[in-house]
Design a protein around this nucleic acid. Sequence first.
DNA 1: CCTACCGATCGGTAGG
DNA 2: CCTACCGATCGGTAGG
Lengths: 189, 189
Amino acid sequence: METTKREQIIKIAVKLFSKRGYAATSMRDIAKEVGMEPASLYNHIKSKQDILRHSILDIASLYTSSIQNVLNMKISPLAKLEQLISDQISITIEHTEAVSLIPSEWVHLEGAKAEFIKVRNEYENGFKQLLTEAVEAKEIRSVDIELTTFSVLSTLRYLYSWYSRNKEIDPAILKVELKKNLLEGVGRR
Amino acid sequence: METTKREQIIKIAVKLFSKRGYAATSMRDIAKEVGMEPASLYNHIKSKQDILRHSILDIASLYTSSIQNVLNMKISPLAKLEQLISDQISITIEHTEAVSLIPSEWVHLEGAKAEFIKVRNEYENGFKQLLTEAVEAKEIRSVDIELTTFSVLSTLRYLYSWYSRNKEIDPAILKVELKKNLLEGVGRR
DNA sequence: CCTACCGATCGGTAGG
DNA sequence: CCTACCGATCGGTAGG
């Protein structure tokens, strides 16, 4: 699998954005890590903003595909929720650093901010719909939809930070354990 | 309750850091919002870094007080966990913007980074200890301590983002509902 | 892909 | 608390 210079630059930029934040990372930082002069980066990318936009929107489209796919499946609402959680864990494992930009760095998007927010809202609304259906089907208790959506999605959004310190874990085990946690809590008796 | 100019400046700076991030907020941005010339800020604060350090360490000390207090209470491990969750919700409600700096902006601390990490680790270790004790007392099921700590604390850490959009909620109801969520999940049947 | 460089903006200081 | 200003660094361009 060949990687273009452009892809190399974006990968390194994402790593630096993830570590220090977009605003605190300079094109000179990126150039040094890539091994070229700052001016040369511009033969491969349009601007610093261009890197951020592509990184974030690429990940956002993975989430969109997942929710659309899950909504069309012929399984119970609760099974759909479980599939969505599995998908999101997979995305986090496969694109850990890019995923880490989603919660904090999207605020630095300039042209694409509105589009990002739209896509994020669609995902959240899909999640709320599944939760509502699962309650109606009596597969889960009658939860507060808004608060539960926040609670479950915030754990999934920040999973990257836990995973980046625990990469040795078996993804299958992570999925089982985290689903149990999100769906059954700590099992208060 | 009189607020000094210094407190006013810090409050406004925290609001801006919270919205755009530390690195993307300039002293000129802060000065404009405060209503003075940039140079005049330095009669009240030592440096931009000084503002960040005080904001973050002040909140961190609230978390430290909470965990120390809870660990010394003469109640069951599960009751301690519930008290810790309540405290953290209270801190988030009372200091929403400053709390929002904790997950993302601490990376920009310069002199105090090691101290912050130490304090954060103490809090996490206290939480893990309570979780372990609750399992041993059979008050909760035998959870994965590391993953559950991450899962519960990530929801609590990012509660500020949900709360800032839902400020009209009754804090008492928020505590009951969120505790239920974290401790019983969605009640999968 | 590099050398050379631009205008803008940054955090912060001197001096009153 | 302000005017005036400093050196450093920023994202990006011209031209080869």
